[in-house]
């Protein structure tokens, strides 16, 4: 079941994801490949972990 606050939370999550990825892209352009990859991972987990908790644990 999707409620309004879940929707808001989802929007925030997507926003944070996009923002973090853009920081990763910026880092990539600065020739810090490893750092960029780690930021992408971070962004992914910041999206996936709460979604997992939201959808399956509760």
């Amino acid at each position: 079941m999707i409620t309004v606050d879940m929707l808001v939370a989802f929007i925030i999550l997507v926003w944070v994801f996009v923002y973090t990825v853009s920081y990763g892209v910026w880092t990539w352009k600065k020739k810090n490949r490893l750092g960029a990859v780690m930021i992408f991972l971070l962004a992914l987990s910041a999206l996936a972990l709460p979604l997992y908790t939201m959808l399956f644990r509760y």
């Binding site: 309004v4 606050d5 808001v8 939370a9 929007i11 925030i12 926003w15």
Partner: peptide, 10 residues
């Protein structure tokens, strides 16, 4: 603003 929105919802 977004955070405040969630807070009021919560």
């Amino acid at each position: 603003l977004m955070l405040a929105a969630t807070c009021t919802l919560l």
